[in-house]
Design a protein around this nucleic acid. Structure first.
Length: 449
RNA sequence: GUGGUUGUAGCUCAGUUGGUUAGAGCGUCGGAUUGUGGUUCCGAAGGUCGCGGGUUCGAGCCCCGUUUUCCACCCCA
């Protein structure tokens, strides 16, 4: 049979893993600088945990797991005849693969509330699955790197997340812009145009602003049944321009009659002012057309875009006031962001920004001419490993050409050649694979890593 | 979920209006070179042309179905 993997999934070669680990390690290092601690949750969750948290669309994209054993035993012929997939699903499947890391985290917080202290700062790097149709930069299995802090309303948390984004992308050498908005402002907008109920339709439409343009946004709003009058009132908001502060000032006037809208403006103002005291490399930009799909966000929302690559957002997140509420723990606010490791990988790839040498590389390979020489290499290798070097011994004394090619294909910088002469002198012939130079050396003359 | 696109050697791809035995480059293996890789030269292995059906004297090529890839929409990291 022809081997294959499910669509939208990928294998990772050693080279790709080295690159991915570079991303993960960079991100982890920065998370730890701010006191975030790692957790993991199971790949599968109970469907009751997952369903209804991501909107109607999200439910469709959940991978469901068939109950084990005779999963049809509890289903009547009538139910089978009905062919109602939704109803049948709940009978034959009670588990699903996680769709993101935030909802399982909310479940984790509620379930482990006795073991954690608030504010709780956690990070989590694990794959998530979506039954989406694969596309450019979109997979059915991909990794998210989430940082969240729950149990604190302070806007300092928002600020720290911006700092983390700034530092991660500084270390990765990717130029980005942080776009920020506030759900309360969007609610305010819906309020003043008199379409409070239609906030989702309005936000989904204006979110497409930079993609389809003003005219098409208006068209979509109209098609969604928003009144012409209301659309007219939204126009000045979509056309806002100037500095962040100028935009905020204009918003204060526009949203004067909306309490919630003004609250959102105030929150953003505080964040921008706090930003000024920091030396951020990244520009933080107020973008009123930023809406983000997930409807559990209630405060600040973020999105990070790479400036030099066309790829969509590579990081996103926001504040959610009551995510743990559905699990029976109301009043806990959280804010977090998620780094899209796979898209960051694509960006680094396109810009060729991966470091040339990886920590995972073998630094020295022992090659030998016979069984005796092979045995001679063992204590040498042990000693060098004790000194912290990554060392390999070619496990068979096959032809030199084969052993050298191996070193070459793995880009191992040094080869220690062992034959009779070397053994007699208690030395090895150390060859620098880049320059081709080689000399007879004792163990203490081998350069430290 | 909707529309389009793609599939030929391990990989990247040629393959004429349908016509004998389906090719190349890279990679792999062997040799030139019995203690030296990355360069060069020679040679070899490697294919149910995604799968199933149909049209035809004859199909890699045309038709139908199916699956896969990629792209757009919906949505999203």
């Amino acid at each position: 049979m022809k081997p294959s993997i499910p669509k939208g999934t990928r294998d990772f070669t050693p080279q790709e893993m080295a690159n991915r680990n570079y991303i993960f390690n960079t991100i982890k290092d920065v998370f730890r600088l701010y006191g975030f601690q790692q957790i993991e949750t199971p790949a599968m969750e109970n469907l009751s945990t997952l369903m209804g948290k991501y909107g109607e669309e999200g439910d469709k994209l959940l991978f469901k797991i068939l109950n084990s054993g005779d999963f049809l035993s509890g289903v009547s012929d009538v139910e089978l005849e009905e062919r109602n997939s939704n109803r049948l699903t709940s009978k034959i499947s009670e588990k699903g693969l996680r769709y993101d890391l935030t909802v399982p985290f909310a479940r984790f917080v509620v379930q482990n509330r006795d073991k954690i202290t608030f504010p709780f700062k956690r990070y989590q790097i694990q794959p998530v699955w979506r039954a989406d149709r694969p596309q450019k930069g979109r997979y059915r299995e991909f990794y998210q790197c989430d940082v969240d802090v729950v149990g604190s309303d302070s806007l300092i948390n928002e600020l720290e997340l911006i700092q983390i984004v700034d530092e991660v992308y500084r270390r990765l050498n990717i130029n980005v812009v942080v776009k920020i908005n506030n759900r309360k402002i969007l609610s305010g907008i819906a309020e003043i145009v008199g379409e409070t109920e239609r906030i989702t339709d309005i936000t989904v439409a204006i979110d497409k602003m930079d993609k389809i343009g003003l005219e098409n946004v208006n068209k979509e709003l109209f098609e969604k049944g928003i009144s012409t009058e209301a659309i007219g009132k939204i126009q000045p908001i979509l056309k806002l321009s100037g500095t962040n502060q100028e935009k905020l000032n204009q918003l204060k006037t526009i949203l004067a009659s909306s309490e919630i809208g003004l609250k959102g403006v105030e929150e953003l103002e505080i964040i921008f002012n706090l930003c000024k005291s920091l030396k951020l490399q990244t520009t933080v930009e107020l973008d009123l057309t930023l809406a983000r799909g997930l409807n559990y966000y209630t405060g600040a929302i973020f999105e990070v875009k790479a400036l030099d690559v066309e790829i969509g957002s590579i990081t996103g997140g926001g504040r959610y006031d009551n995510l743990t509420g559905v699990f029976g723990m109301p009043g806990v606010s959280g804010v977090g962001i998620s780094f899209g490791a796979d898209r960051i990988h694509d960006v680094l790839n396109q810009l060729n920004l991966y470091p040339e040498t990886s920590e995972e590389q073998t630094q020295i390979l022992f090659v030998s001419f016979g069984e005796k020489e092979l045995a001679y290499c063992l204590p040498w290798a042990s000693e060098l490993r004790k000194r912290g070097m990554n060392v390999e011994i070619y496990p068979e004394p096959v032809k030199m050409k084969k052993q050298m090619s191996y070193a070459d294909s793995k880009k191992i910088p040094f080869v220690a050649i062992v034959g009779e002469t070397e053994m007699k002198e208690n030395k090895v012939m150390l060859k620098n694979m880049k320059t081709g130079e080689q000399k007879l050396v004792g163990i203490d003359e081998i350069p430290a890593p």
